[in-house]
Structure formats: C-alpha cells, structure tokens
Amino acid sequence: MKVTIDGISLDVPQGTTILQAARMIGPEVAPPTMCYYSKLKTSGGYCRTCIVKVTKGSNQNPNPIPKPVASCRTEVLDGMEVQNVTSSEVLEARKGVVEFLLINHPLDCPVCDQAGECHLQDLGYGHGAASSRYEFKRREYEMIDIGPHIKLHMNRCILCYRCVKTAEQITNGRVHGVMHRGDAAEISTYIEQALENDFSGNVIDVCPVGALTDKTYRFKQRVWFTKPMDAHRNCKTCSGQVRLWLKGEQVVRVTRAKMPGMKWSPLFAIHADLIIKKHRIGLLKVPLKFNGIRLYHKTITST
C-alpha cells in the first residue's frame, strides 16, 4: 500500500497504522506520541498527541478526512496522503493537546527525577506555549509507594495507560490499574497492594513522565549528569540487557536497555528487552573498577 506522509511516499503492508508508517520514514516526519508504545498490544488512542491531517483518504475515496485523526489508531489505505508537520492546522491542534496534557501536570521539573528524559518535557518544549493559561487548582494526590522500589507520584500522571498495559501483558495477574473515571481517574494498586512481580520494575521505564520513578535512584542525580553504558548480564529469567547510568565510576541507576523490534510476552521474557528486579537493585552495588582494574566493560557475565 502506498502512503504519502509530508510529501514522502512509502510502501507499507496492509494493517500498518499511519504512525508506524511515519516512523518507518524517519523521526523527522513521525508524530510525537505519549501513550503509544510499539511493544504493547492495543496501546495508543488516549493522548491525541499523534494527530495528523489526512488530506486524501485513499485512491478509491480521495476525499479528505474532515477532522485530524489519531495516527496511532488509524490504518493506512492505498494512496492515502497525510500531513503532519507541513500542516499548520495539525501543529495548532497539537499545541492544544499539549495544553490539555499540562493542565493537571504540576510542572515540578526541577524536583522530578524524570526531567531530562521526560517525553512530556520534550513535547511541551517543542509544541507547547511558554506559559500556562490554567489558573485553577490542579488535582493533587499523596505519593504512594508501589512496592519497595517504585514510587507513584500521581500528580504527574497523564493517564497514558502504558504501565497498566505493561503490567497486564508481561505479568500474569496484575494488581494495578486505573480507578475512577474522567478527572478523578487515578493509577492505583488495588488496596495499595504492592507490585510483587519480578518484572514490575519495567513500568518505571515505560512511564513517559515522572509518575512512576525508581526509588533506588530517587533524587540521587540529575539525568544529564550521568552517562549511560549498555551492558549485558547473563540471566535465566530475563534478557539481561541493562543500561547502567554512571556518575564517574559509580553506577547510580540501572534501567532496561531499549532494543527495538523485540516482542514482549510473559513466556518469552528472555527474548524481550525486559529486565528483572534483581538487576535493577543488584547492579547498583557492583563497582565498575576494583583496585584500579576495570571489572567489566560493555559486558557483564553473571557470577
């Protein structure tokens, strides 16, 4: 199927969404996303950040779609023509979406651990207005400890459902989800039940904002003062693809190393790029150098 996005044509298989096609072309035409996560099934469709304008529906029906559509949920048709950054209407609408996302967001970036790698920060910087018009009280929640290593800061949540879907799809028997509706909706573990699963730490990595943060890294360093280093750890349960965040020679944080194209499933965790809790905490204690000798570089073998 031939689809044209911002003047660039591409052949894609049937069932591809506009967003996936745009990502195939490259980051310069791909619309930004907040809730869509390529590895999750049925993700996307909540945040409306990825809206695009369809100027030509298909070869059979060349009429344009009158309203901007969510590109993560709209499949391409043969001969479709899409405008993203070339359409001022889309950019204006996206600016409105950003403003809506920021209505209840506390804008406490100086405090937040996500600052520097926050998708909402990037989005606000790229598409939002410099100031907020919202003058009412923002919704406020108490911070919740989800398990011993995850902190939920509900004020910052934009309800993208990524963590809920992650927990649903990689673990069996999830214990957290979204309660209530509309403005009152909030991420919650049922009756404050901790996420006990070994893979639950991955919800920190999928959170696009600073709502779910790593307690072992809490307020330790700013992201831009640390250096990432990819490493591998032999593991029977997970992929062992970790990214160590270094401050000098000290490991201050361990996250999952993003590996594109890997499928997520509870049965095949070894082939996904998920990591288990043991590495997130255990690797913090491993020194990078011992008596001046580098213990590992790029690769860590389990002992």
Binding site: P110, V111, A115, F219, W224, F225
Partner: peptide, 22 residues
C-alpha cells in the same frame, strides 16, 4: 533551592556542584 542542577549546567566555568536529598 531544590537542587535541580540548572545552575551547574548553565555555569560556563563549572564552578557549581551540589548533592540533593529528600
């Protein structure tokens, strides 16, 4: 001060260092 580190990043002489706490 909330130890956000913006001053340390902005500093052209790299004169500022800080550690944060909760």
């Amino acid at each position: 001060c909330t130890a956000c580190g913006m001053c340390a990043v902005a500093c052209p002489a790299e004169a500022i260092t800080m550690e944060s706490a909760e």
